[in-house]
C-alpha cells in the first residue's frame, strides 16, 4: 500500500511539474490578487482593532504580510481544483483503468494523489514565502513559524485535493470539476482570509465563523505576522487535519462507489 502510494505520488508530482500550464495559475492568480489587494486596500489596517484581534502589538506588520495568508489559501484551494481536473482527465483518457487493473489496494490510488498534492502545496507555499522575503519582512516567527506554515499548508493542500478528487470521481469528467472554479472565490470571500472576522458584516461573519478556510487562513497568518503564540495556529492545524481526514476518506469512499457502480 505504502510503496504503491509513494510510486503514484511521485508519478503525479512529476506529471504536474511537466504541465506548467496547470501549475502556473496556482501561483500567478493569487499573486496578482495579492498585488491588487495590497496596493489598493492597505488603508484597511487603519481601522480600529484591525491588528489587536490577532494579538499583535505595535510595531504592526504590513498589510502585505496580512494578505499573504489569503494568497496562500487561494493558491491551495486552486491546487485542489487542479488535482481534481488531473484525476478527471485520467478517468477520461483511460489511464485510471490501468491503475485500477493493477494489483494494488485501490485506496493507494487516492492516497498517492493526495500525497502529491501535499508536496505540490509545499512548492506553492515556498513561492509565497519567497515573496514575503522579497517584498516583506519574511516570516515574523522565524524557522518555527515557517515550519508551522508549511505543515498547516501542506495538510490543508491535501484536504483541498481530497475535495477535487471526490468531485472528479463523482463527476467522471474534467469540465464538471473545472466548473467549480468560481466557487473557490465564493468560499474565499466568505471566510476571514481577506479581512478580519470582526470587520465582516452579517451574514458573511456567521458563514466565515463556520468556514474551515477561515481557521486555515488564520493558522497560516499567525506565524507570518508574529502571532504563533495564539490559538490561531492550533485551530489552523485542527481545521487542516479535519479537512484532510474528512475529504481523504470521502474521496476513498467515492472511488469505492465508482468501482462498485460500474
Amino acid at each position: 500500500m505504502i510503496l504503491a502510494s509513494v510510486a503514484l505520488a511521485q508519478r503525479a508530482l512529476r506529471v504536474t511539474l511537466r504541465r506548467p500550464q496547470f501549475l502556473a495559475p496556482l501561483l500567478i492568480f493569487p499573486s496578482l490578487l495579492l498585488a491588487v489587494n495590497t496596493g489598493g486596500l492597505s488603508q484597511a489596517t487603519s481601522l480600529p482593532g484591525f491588528w489587536e484581534q490577532y494579538g499583535v502589538t505595535a510595531p504592526y506588520p504590513s498589510f502585505f504580510e496580512f494578505q499573504l495568508a489569503a494568497a496562500m489559501s487561494q493558491s491551495l484551494l486552486l491546487g485542489g481544483v487542479a488535482t481534481g481536473i488531473a484525476v478527471a482527465l485520467e478517468l477520461e483518457m483511460g489511464f485510471f483503468d490501468r491503475l485500477v487493473a493493477a494489483p494494488i489496494p485501490r485506496a493507494s490510488i487516492v492516497l498517492g494523489r493526495l500525497l502529491a498534492a501535499g508536496a505540490i502545496a509545499l512548492v506553492q507555499l515556498s513561492w509565497f514565502v519567497s515573496l514575503s522575503l522579497i517584498f516583506g519582512s519574511g516570516i515574523a516567527d522565524g524557522i518555527p513559524g515557517l515550519i508551522e506554515v508549511y505543515l498547516i499548508g501542506a495538510i490543508a493542500g491535501i484536504g483541498f485535493a481530497g475535495i477535487g478528487v471526490t468531485l472528479a470521481l463523482r463527476a467522471g469528467n474534467a469540465s464538471t470539476v473545472q466548473s467549480i472554479f468560481p466557487l473557490v472565490f465564493v468560499v474565499l470571500f466568505l471566510s476571514s482570509a481577506f479581512f478580519p472576522p470582526n470587520l465582516l458584516t452579517s451574514p458573511a461573519d456567521l458563514i466565515a465563523k463556520w468556514n474551515p478556510l477561515s481557521y486555515i487562513a488564520n493558522g497560516l497568518r499567525a506565524p507570518i505576522i508574529g502571532a504563533s503564540g495564539t490559538s490561531d495556529v492550533l485551530e489552523g492545524f485542527a481545521a487542516a487535519i479535519g479537512l484532510a481526514l474528512f475529504f481523504g476518506l470521502l474521496a476513498t469512499w467515492s472511488l469505492r462507489v465508482r468501482l462498485q457502480s460500474k
Partner: peptide, 21 residues
Amino acid sequence: AALDPLMTGRELIILQATLQG
C-alpha cells in the same frame, strides 16, 4: 492504449513494474 502522454516510455514501464510489486 491509455498512456500518460507526459511520461516517457521507460517511466511508464517502471511505474507498472512498481505497481506489480
